[in-house]
């Protein structure tokens, strides 16, 4: 029938699109993984590009953990990113709620200010902040990174959270008030569960923002035992040579925690946000 034929064509097209996207992502990551398993000589061999490791080696990973103390870097990155993520999520729930549910004087200015903070070139912020942080004794602590990542990612997360709040119909809250709930109770008991996917998404945004940041990491941290993953990987680029293999191994290592998180998150983002509409 015409209808099913059309549908089949649509499915085919969709499959093709999905396949292309998959390849786009998989190929570079495949390249990273196989490079991390090659010997250095094979990697820099300019006469022959190899598409799989002809001489498989785990040397790069051994070096990464033994010589470069990768575990410590992962720990640092995780501590900083998780705490940044949690704190941002908390603050943006309140901020997002305030922006979504009220109209008040100075709202436009406030929003513009949020956006402006995203426009200042980073270098112009880092130097004054360095002075402030060093007065507070924060330099060379994870706390300095936490604060920096907090303020850098917060405006974006508040604005995003607000757009999630706006999707939740107000009637839902209203019903709670009629039942005699306070604003806090209704926020915690009624809205947040519905919002959960959005909250997860904001957490992930903040986490990733902190996880990948490099420049503040090199400026605010002095000793290598507090380096985050990107800073540690950057140190593999020497004046004369790049430790490609170890670097790629480090890239793969940094991908694993985030991959798990995505696997966890996508379930909520995709299946969860519908809940708001269903409960309506």
């Amino acid at each position: 029938m015409k209808y099913t034929a059309k549908r089949r064509l649509g499915n085919l097209g969709r499959g093709l699109i999905l396949l292309i996207f998959m390849l786009l992502v998989i190929l570079p990551i495949y390249w990273m993984i196989i490079s991390s398993l090659k010997t250095n000589a094979e990697i820099i061999n300019a006469q022959q590009v190899t598409y799989y490791p002809h001489q498989m080696t785990g040397e790069n990973y051994t070096q990464l953990f033994k010589l470069y103390n990768y575990r410590q870097m992962l720990t640092n990155s995780l501590i900083v990113s998780i705490s940044t993520g949690l704190c941002i999520t908390l603050l943006s729930i309140f901020g997002g709620y305030g922006l979504a549910r009220y109209s008040f004087r100075g709202k436009d200015t406030m929003l513009l200010f949020f956006l402006v903070t995203q426009m200042i070139p980073g270098i112009l912020v880092i130097i004054p902040l360095y002075v402030i942080f060093s007065k507070l004794g924060l330099i060379n602590t994870r706390l300095s990174l936490f604060f920096f990542y907090l303020i850098v990612n917060l405006p974006f997360c508040v604005i995003t959270m607000r757009s999630f709040f706006e999707r939740i119909p107000y009637t839902l809250e209203e019903a709670a008030y009629v039942d005699g709930c306070s604003k806090m109770t209704s926020l915690v008991r009624i809205i947040l569960p519905v919002m959960f996917p959005g909250i997860v998404a904001v957490f992930v945004f903040a986490f990733i923002g902190a996880w990948n940041e490099l420049i503040a990491g090199t400026i605010f941290i002095n000793t290598s035992n507090l380096w985050t993953v990107p800073v540690g990987l950057k140190s593999l680029i020497g004046k004369y040579d790049v430790k490609w293999g170890v670097l790629m191994a480090g890239g793969v290592g940094a991908l694993i925690p985030t991959a798990f998180m995505f696997a966890f998150m996508q379930k909520f983002v995709v299946e969860g946000l519908t809940a708001g509409a269903v409960k309506e």
Partner: peptide, 8 residues
């Protein structure tokens, strides 16, 4: 996944 890799 690409989003979770650092720009560098």
């Amino acid at each position: 996944l690409p989003w979770s890799l650092s720009a560098f």
